[in-house]
Design a binder for these strands. Structure first.
Length: 499
RNA sequence: GGCCCGUUGGUCAAGAGGUUAAGACACGGCCCUUUCACGGCUGUAACGUGGGUUCAAUUCCCGCACGGGUCACCA
């Protein structure tokens, strides 16, 4: 018999009068971009309504357990500042927060459903239960419900014989079910199109379909945020809530994040996960900001705003701004966001995040990392762009004299040689090797020679760096290189140009 | 295939029964400049389609096309 006292005690634990949302990933070992967005929206709904954000681990599929996967989830949420108020690691009033630790509880609620006549034991093997209808090569499963017609005597007999069974939801054969979704509105389906889905598997563990309903209710979840792939199961969940007599939460079904017009982002196709994006040189804040806008847009007077801190998102977020159609992930736009975030960092912060990448390319300890970082900050879109820009510091590349020819700067090989011939003695004689001194000295020289600044700067920069494109101009590069190295390189330039 | 959902420039998207149909990214051009970049200015580019309803439809309704989701003892 159902244990009424137990149910009453469970009901008594449920916090009332607050918005409660939950992020409920199954531990797969990495965070999809789509998952991250769901977590973000779920967190935002809670925070924007002064509510509670809960983390629940859905690990009922024993075949797919991944070692250490829960840690990835904790770590990602923490890195993204999506802090949870309740969860396996922090506890809370309605735990445990890991489904396998709630195992016994699902059985009790399934028993309750059995007694209410809203579920039944099914002794069919997986194969027997399959009523596969092949149309156009598509397999369609729908259980025919034969075990729902077993007599009590037959059930007792099979139970006594120790036959394994699952518990299935008993769906009405007629009528329709309507549910409401905050994004999609009212959706109505024929009950006859709904399958008598399995609630409790033969291993005794609940399916997702059952566990999420029971847990969402027992945890007092007010807004159920999940991917739109659950839209077609929602009517069955409604029926379950109704059978229990529970209040139906607000559903928020989010459309997927796509890699292109027809495929979801997926690890299998080589699409980046959150961890991958970090490894590719993107900043967490930029990823969050970009992902927030993939499928949600601000309305009203801030409709044009694109850059949002997490706090600003909390203030601006509303469920009504979530879009119904899938959004294609555009790495180019993420890059743009990332570039903006890199530039918004203080020089010290930027230097801190950039240093490892600078050191990949620049090993010479004589070169000032902070000074290099300062050049880079406005010139890279992601941190992994950095090393390739700095190759010339440690070793002057073998370059083509044609680099000295630049129409816009009005230089060619002969002019460049003249410029270097004038610049070398000047730099040699400079009293102090400061950026100001180099700059002023060269500018005065250009004035004295009656040439455009660029006419002098171009060959100096080419000789110093040996490449066409450099982070920063001649002055900055010479200063970082130091006087000796600069002069050594300019003399190499003179030699090259003299041939 | 059944059921459900969606469809504004290449991408993210705002928008409302009457607008020159925003903005951002990308792309092109120009300016600035000590290269590249940054910054500034500017340009190309969109309401899937056929029927209704209406004085008026991209906006509302229906069909179609296309795309997605789902139809597991996976979540």
């Amino acid at each position: 018999m159902a244990d009424q006292a137990f149910f009453d005690a469970m009901e008594a634990r449920i916090p009332k009068g607050q918005v409660r949302t939950r992020f409920a990933p199954s531990p797969t070992g990495y965070m999809h971009v789509g998952n991250l967005r769901t977590a973000l929206y779920t967190w935002l709904i809670a925070r924007s309504k002064g509510g509670v954000f809960i983390l629940r681990i859905e690990d009922t599929d024993q075949g797919r357990l991944v070692e250490g996967a829960a840690d990835v989830i904790y770590k990602t949420l923490a890195q993204c500042h999506l802090t949870h108020d309740e969860g396996p690691d922090v506890g809370g009033p309605v735990g445990p927060y890991i489904q396998t630790e709630r195992r016994d509880l699902y059985g009790k609620y399934a028993q309750l459903l059995l007694e209410k006549g809203a579920a039944y034991r099914c002794f069919c093997s997986k194969e027997d239960a399959e009523n596969v209808d092949v149309s156009d090569g598509v397999q369609v499963h729908q259980y025919d419900g034969r075990c729902s017609r077993l007599t009590p005597a037959e059930i007792a007999e099979k139970l006594a014989a120790g036959l394994p069974f699952v518990i299935r939801q008993k769906i009405p054969r007629t009528g329709t079910t309507t549910f409401h979704d905050a994004i999609f509105g009212d959706i109505t389906v024929e009950n006859s199109s709904l399958d008598d889905q399995v609630l409790i598997k033969s291993d005794g563990l609940p399916t997702y379909n059952f566990a999420n309903v029971v847990d969402d209710h027992l945890m007092g979840i007010t807004h159920v945020v999940r991917g739109s792939e659950y839209l077609s199961s929602a009517p069955k969940y409604n029926l379950l809530y109704e059978s229990f007599g529970w209040e139906i939460p607000t559903y928020v079904h989010c459309s997927p994040v796509m890699r292109d017009a027809q495929n979801k982002m997926s690890k299998r196709h080589g699409d980046p996960s959150y961890e991958d994006l970090l490894a590719q040189g993107y900043l967490t804040d930029a990823v969050l900001n970009y992902v927030a806008l993939l499928g949600w847009s601000p309305r009203g007077e801030i409709a044009e705003q694109e850059i949002f801190s997490l706090d600003e998102l909390v203030k601006a977020f509303d469920i009504g701004g979530i879009s119904k159609s899938p959004a294609i992930f555009d790495i180019a736009k993420l890059e743009h966001f990332n570039a903006l975030y890199l530039r918004a960092l203080s020089p010290e912060e930027f230097c801190a995040v950039a240093t490892p990448y600078i050191r990949q390319a620049v090993e010479n300890p004589a070169y000032d990392v902070a000074e290099i970082a300062a050049l880079l900050q406005a010139r890279c879109e992601k941190l992994t762009d950095i090393p390739e820009k700095l190759g010339f510091f440690d070793a002057l590349p073998a370059y083509d004299v044609a680099y000295y020819v630049n129409k816009k700067s009005k230089t060619d090989e002969a002019i460049s040689l003249a410029m270097l011939n004038a610049a070398v003695p000047l730099l040699e004689a400079l009293p102090a090797w400061t950026a100001e001194a180099i700059h002023d000295g060269l500018m005065e020289l250009a004035a004295k020679l009656e040439v455009k600044n660029a006419t002098l700067m171009w060959p100096v920069r080419i000789a110093a760096a040996g490449c066409l494109v450099t982070p920063g101009g001649a002055v900055e590069i010479c200063h970082i290189l130091g006087r000796d190295e600069t002069l050594r390189r300019l003399k190499i330039g003179q030699t090259l140009l003299s041939k």
